[in-house]
Structures are given as C-alpha cells and as structure tokens.
Design a protein around this nucleic acid. Sequence first.
DNA 1: GACAATTAAATGTCTGACAAATGAAAATCG
DNA 2: CGATTTTCATTTGTCAGACATTTAATTGTC
Lengths: 251, 251
Amino acid sequence: MKIDPDSNADLSAQIAGAIRDAIISGDLRVDERLPSESELSDQFGVSRPTVREALKRLGAQSLIRTQRGATGGAFVNKLTYPDAYGQQITTSTLLLSMNAVSFQTACEARYALERACAPLSTKRRTADHLATMRAEAHRQAQPGLSDESFCASDVAFHRALVDAADNPVLSYQLAGAVEAMQPLMNMITFTARSRERIVALHTAIADAIEAQDAEATDRHLEELAAYTNELAQSVFDARAKQSASKSGVSS
Amino acid sequence: MKIDPDSNADLSAQIAGAIRDAIISGDLRVDERLPSESELSDQFGVSRPTVREALKRLGAQSLIRTQRGATGGAFVNKLTYPDAYGQQITTSTLLLSMNAVSFQTACEARYALERACAPLSTKRRTADHLATMRAEAHRQAQPGLSDESFCASDVAFHRALVDAADNPVLSYQLAGAVEAMQPLMNMITFTARSRERIVALHTAIADAIEAQDAEATDRHLEELAAYTNELAQSVFDARAKQSASKSGVSS
DNA sequence: GACAATTAAATGTCTGACAAATGAAAATCG
DNA sequence: CGATTTTCATTTGTCAGACATTTAATTGTC
C-alpha cells in the first residue's frame, strides 16, 4: 500500500482506494480487523483525521464497519444482500432523477428485466410467493386504499414475483428496477390509471404463475407494460393539451 | 436538517444522511453548492472534522464533488452513467465474492438478464455494434491470445450486445452482470473451455442479431449458457476427482 | 485596456487533546 | 477457590486551532 503525496487525488481518497483494492483482491478477508487508526496513520505517513476520512469513505460503501472499545476497530464487512439492495435502489433512484430518462426507456428496461425473471418464477414459485401476490392483488382492490398504499402494494407484488425466481443474484439485480423505477412510474401514471385494470392484470399474472404457464405470464406482463406506456402517453398528452390551452389564453 | 447528539449513530453518519435525504428529495439540486464546511459545522453544531467525515461519505457515493479554491466548495454531483456503472460493478463483484454464490445461480442470473436484452438488441443493433461483436469474435479466434485478453474480449462482446439494445438504463442494470459476473465465470471455466466452440457461438449470435432473428439469438444464448454450465460442472468434477485421489494416496 | 501581483475564501492536512465505549485483567469479597 | 466488582488500557468519536494549498476575484501597474 503506497501513497503518493504529489498526486492530484486527496490523500484520503488514495488511502481509501488502497484499502478497497486490498479488500477486493482478497488480501483483507471478511471480518478481518484493520490496523487501528493510529497504526494506519503511521503506515501511510498521514495524520489520523486523514485516515479517518478514508475509513468513512469505505464505511459509506459498506466495505467496512467500525466498533468502539478495547477490541474495537475497523473490520472488513461482509456485503449482505440487503446492503447491496439498498445501494442499488439509491443509485437507481438518483440515476433516473438526475438524467432525464424518458418514461419509455425506463419502462422498457423495467419490464424487460421482469420478463427475464418470469420464466424462472413460474417454474419455482412457492405457495408463499403466490400467497403474497394474491394478498397484494386483493389489497389493491380495496376501495379506500390511498395512492401511496396502492403504490407500495404494487411494489410488493412485483417483488414477490421476482423473488419467486428463487435466485438471490437476480433479486438483487432487479431491486433497482422494482423498488426505484416502479415508484417513479407510479408517480406519473397514478392519476390516469384504472385500478380495476391493474388488479385484473395482476390477478391474471398470479393465475398464470400458479398454473406454471410461462407463456401466459409473459403475455400478461407485456400487456401490463403496454398499459403502463399507454397511461403515460395519455398523461403526457393531457399535460401538452393543458399547456397549449394555457398559452392560448395568455396570448 | 436536525441532528440528535444522543442517537447511537455517529454524528457524521447523521449529517451525511440528512444531506443525502436533501439531495434525493430534490431540496438540493444538481450543481447546487452546499454551504462551506465552516458554515455546516455551525449549522449542525459540530466541528469541522466531523462535517468533513460526513462529506467524504457522500463523496464516496458520488453524491457530491468538492472543489478547492475561492469559489470552491461541495457541489451536488450529477450521477452519471459511468459513475453508476462503476458502483454497480464494485458492488456486484463484492457481493459475489463474499456470499458463496453457486456458479449455477450466478450463471442463471447473468444469462436471464442478457436474454432480456437480446430481443431489443436484435431490433435496434447498428452497424457499429455489429462491427464490435465481429471484431471481438475475430480477436478471440487468434491463436496467440492470452487468457486475460480472451476474457476481456469476451466481456467486450457481451457489452456490445447489451449496448445494442440502445437503452442506457438497461445497460446500467446489466453492467454488474457483464462486467462482474462474466470475469468471475471466466476464471472458473477458462482451463476447460474450447475457444473454438465459444467463437462459433459468438459468431452465431452475431449472425442472428445481424439477421434480426430474435428467436435464433435467444437459442444461441441459451446454448452458450448451457455450455458455460457444462464447463463449470466438468471443472468441479475434475477438482472433486483430484481431491479424492489425493486423499486416497495419503491414506 | 492588458497584464501582473495581491488578496480572500475555500478545501486539504496536521497536531494535540479529551470523551466515550468496551473488553480484559486485576482486585475484592463471600 | 469462585464469583463479582473494579480498574485499566485500547480504540473510536469528537473537538479546537492552526497552517498549507488552491483558485478566482480584486487591485494595482504599465
């Protein structure tokens, strides 16, 4: 681990990079304790605050965890699925909100990914996953349900569908699609959508998965994607109309 | 933005969380300048080193960038696709290496995702993407190619396939699958694989995509997945045999 | 008006210190 | 001797103040 004081990068960034590389390469193993902050500052030839800044960077990426006390210190953290989900969702949310992604592009990506899951889900779905999907579809049919709750239930339905594939790596990869894109899409379409239509499609999907009919599952997911795009289009059309009439009045 | 000094969490973590929330919620917009470190330390009632640790956490997630000098400071960073790719790849690599994911699980996830892309790629592929795939397949057929270069070319081939879908969100989502899983899988299978067989499959895939034959593309990708699994199985069998014969000698 | 020197503001880094947590060792008591 | 309590050393968390470095705006000069 060598540090170049003349480099353009911050010392703390260089130190964080060196430790990160050691973790990724396996030189530092899970649950292994790093040297104390004082020792690290000696090793790298920098002050303790600088080392601390480097450690905070790594902590923010869930690469290490710290513990106070006599036997405390910084330990290489095992990156758990929930940790990875969280990062995935945060990154996806920010990426979409900061990059002016068209609705169509996001929707296409989201359903392409979910349809990749579906064949596995139809094959492996358990009673548990089916029960969750049924329960959420049922909840969505309740008349008094708030828009927020409907959206949350929508997410839960799709998460159950994805988890039914019984592949944690796939569930992780789809976390961004389901938990970041779906809410964003809901925010756009919720004014125009017909809950009955969505519940009917969700029920049809659950039926197809229960019957282990991959072809029908795919068809209904495609319908749901098409309906979502249709909704977005009508919302955008309505907005365009409104702004046109506004400018007409003002002129 | 309020901070609770009695909370269990570090002050720097609380401050980082408060600023992160402000960014995600849109209270702080892209390229907006945060108050200076001194002002932040006054606002939150903590010292400057503590504020700095919080800012380093955010910097590690590419949420802010800092600039020195008179008009410098911390700015809300626009999360670019390359940034997001990088995080995705790092997280995926660590998740796989730390969680004892079976080869089968990883391979299944990876090909499910790529096959989700393929129909879009067959529809939208440009001459550019086709040329890249052809060039990489050609490179892979060179006799003197090192294993590292073959692996890198393999990744480049699949990245071109994914990018041909012309959906940046999908490309981002698949970055982990292509750039993290593919190299890991290569590390396991490279001793046993037949380069000819892989080049033939890559060529068949490129042909199918050029012909815009989605069905054939999917079939060849499935073959590639099956062959990869087969290779891994043979490697694992050989390892098991070797360790069995070893223990037989020693007994 | 163009160019050079100065200045102010901000981050980057260091030193030294104290507080708080925590496990281990030592001391004490039954 | 065994169990409990106390002490203590170690480590992270936080603070204060200072100086170095970078950078752009300002000022001064020709």
